[in-house]
Each structure stands twice: as structure tokens, then as C-alpha cells.
Design a protein around this nucleic acid. Structure first.
Lengths: 188, 188
DNA sequence: CTATTGATGTCATCTGATGACATGGGATTG
DNA sequence: CAATCCCATGTCATCAGATGACATCAATAG
């Protein structure tokens, strides 16, 4: 391959997270990250579109797995049931390493522009889920509403799980949140 | 007051929206906006924190009015009812000029970084609504879930209203969406 | 051995953003 | 009326993020 140490993108990811944790996102310059990873800043931008994206690499994988679960749900499942299956898959993907999730989330929560990026990733996920629902024959309106609702549940559940004192299973927290949603909307 | 034509921030807002519509957001430089408004770029950044913020000025007013409606809701109202009242207020604030909303939305939808900014504004709104619900004695978990759900309804409803062929009342669309949500979550 | 390829470096440049300081017209005050 | 202050704005300098154009060099194919 190349003449340099392989795995540049991985090193950049690690270096970025470490530095963002040490000094904060804004206080970290791309040149610093690149230096720690043993490349130049120009190379950083070849791997990641911008300074924030380096923290959101896995999101496409998350989206793919969730979509796969959505498609695999039985045809008889309701819109919300299918969304629930997608959420389970998401939980399984993320739920393995809570420490990493927490570190990442600490960095993101501390910075507005990172929160922005996180939100748009979730929105992309929402759009994808809505598309998956439509392919299951669900109408446009119901599809987007169910997808948005699913994302809302995910957001709330993730925040609970990450900040929980005890070590809970992410999937359980999601189901609990979903149940709470049903209660909430049922009450008149 | 100053020695120059007053109303600089208003002129900057108008100039920005016009230019974003004409050439697109990224193709418009801050210096262009400033020039059209008769000030310098430095002045632009005195009024608006960044190039995107100029499109989101009214969001604080929207938040305030919605919060006021939330607080004004009867004490007996459920969490979702209170949220519904807040959404009504939001609809009333926005619903007057659909053309402006549509122009703004066209610009925002066309640009990823503007969509990011819009999302974080909605999240800020969500947090504020959750806070308002907590002040009504609703528990943390239920408050944030109800708020997030409300935002989801708002997003879906706004998108429908703005893109609708006919000229519908925004409040009506919101109620319709809310009803649909209840149906959705009720089905087992 | 030579050509090709692909990841990386180097250089130049643009734009967004921000701090420090200057300026001058209107408002205030004696 | 004149001295003075206030403050919105201008001017200047500088930095960091981002991107295009082109050079470079090791591995690998043929």
C-alpha cells in the first residue's frame, strides 16, 4: 500500500476523541489531531469532511443495522413495532461499550456544534427509517410520524442509559421508554 | 443613536435571506450580505453569532410564546395537553405568513449546516418545554418524553403545512398530526 | 525493471470568525 | 452653546477551518 504507517483514519479518530476530552473541542486544532496521528492536517480532511465528523463515523453503520432490522421485521408488525425492532438493533450496536459511548457523549454534550451534528445524524436516521416503513406499505404521513417518534424515544432512552447510575441494558431502557410513551399518549 | 442609517440588523436579515435565495447559502459571503445592508462584515458578526444565525432570529420569540402558553394551560391538563397548548401558540406565531416560512424553509432545507442549526433550535425548544412541564409538577422522565414527542409532532406538521398544495391552517395540521400520533401509539 | 497506482505531503488561497483599537454623530449635561 | 460622553460602527490584524492543484514515493503489477 502506502509508504506510511497504515490505519491513519483509526489513529485520527482516537487522537481526536482523546484531545477533545483533554482540552475540549474548540481548543483542539485539526493540526494537533493530525500531529498526534502522525499525518498532516490535509490528510485529516481527506478522511473526514470536517472537524466534527471524526466523532460520527459509526453512524452510518448504526443506520444500516437498524434498517436491516426494520426490514427483517414480520410483515404483520405495526409501524411502531417495526420501529421498535430497529431500535433494538441500534441498542445492540451501541450497547456493547457504554464507556466509549459515555466519553463520546461527554464531548458532544459539551459543544453546541457537535450537538448540531449529532442531531442531523439522527434526522438522517429518521428519514431512513421512514423510507423503510414506506417500503413496508405504510403511508407517508404515518411513516414519517412513526420514524420521528422512534427517534424521540431513542434520544430520551439514550440519555437515560448513558447517565444512569447503575449499569442497565440499553435495550431495556428503550422498551421502558416506549412503554412510557404509550401511557403518555393514551391518557386523555 | 448612531450616525448611520438605523435598523442595521433588520437590513442584514433581509439581505441575507434574499441572497441565500438568489445564490444559495454557501455561495453567499458575509461580506456580500453586509454590503447589501450598507455595513461591514464585522458589523454582521456583532449582530449575529455566525452566518446561519441570521435566519433563526425569531426562534427565541417562538420559544417564549410557546412557553407562556404552556404555563397558562390549566393545572388539570395532562402533559400532552399542555404540550398541545404550546404547539397551538407556536402555530399562531408562525402561521401568519406562510410565504415567508416557505422561503425560509426552502433555504434551510437546501443546506445541511442550516438544517443542523434548525434542529438545535428545536432541541432548545424541547428542553424549554420539558422544563416548563417539570414546573407543572410532572416527573423528569415524562416531561422530557412529552416534550420530545411534541417536537416530533411539530416537525412533521410543519413540513406538511409548508409543502401542502392547499392553504391550510397550521394549527389544524398540528391537531391532525397529534391525533394521528395517538392512533399510532394506541394500536398494539 | 518499469509503469502504474494510491495514499500522503506541500503549497496557495479563501472564507468564517474574533480581538483590539479608532472614530465620529447624536444625546446629555452644565 | 460648548464640552463631554456614549456606543454603534469602522478598520486592521490574525487565526482556524476548509479546499484545490500538484508533487512525491512506496508497493505492486506486468
Amino acid at each position: 500500500m502506502g509508504r506510511w504507517e497504515p490505519g491513519a483514519s483509526g489513529r485520527l479518530r482516537e487522537a481526536a476523541l482523546a484531545l477533545y476530552l483533554e482540552r475540549g473541542f474548540e481548543q483542539t486544532m485539526v493540526a494537533d489531531i493530525a500531529e498526534r496521528a502522525g499525518v498532516t492536517a490535509r490528510t485529516f480532511f481527506r478522511y473526514f469532511g470536517d472537524k466534527r465528523e471524526v466523532l460520527f463515523d459509526g453512524s452510518s453503520e448504526l443506520e444500516e443495522r437498524s434498517l436491516a432490522a426494520l426490514e427483517a421485521a414480520p410483515a404483520t408488525a405495526s409501524a411502531l413495532d417495526a420501529v421498535s425492532a430497529a431500535l433494538d438493533a441500534a441498542a445492540e450496536t451501541i450497547g456493547d461499550n457504554r464507556d466509549l459511548a459515555r466519553a463520546r457523549q461527554r464531548v458532544i454534550t459539551a459543544n453546541a456544534s457537535l450537538r448540531e451534528r449529532e442531531l442531523i445524524k439522527l434526522t438522517s436516521m429518521s428519514a431512513a427509517v421512514a423510507g423503510g416503513l414506506r417500503q413496508r406499505g405504510i403511508g407517508d404521513a404515518e411513516a414519517s410520524l412513526a420514524a420521528e417518534t422512534g427517534i424521540a424515544v431513542f434520544r430520551v432512552a439514550f440519555e437515560r442509559w448513558v447517565n444512569a447510575a447503575e449499569d442497565r441494558d440499553f435495550g431495556d431502557v428503550i422498551h421502558e421508554t416506549l412503554t412510557q410513551l404509550r401511557t403518555l399518549t393514551a391518557a386523555s
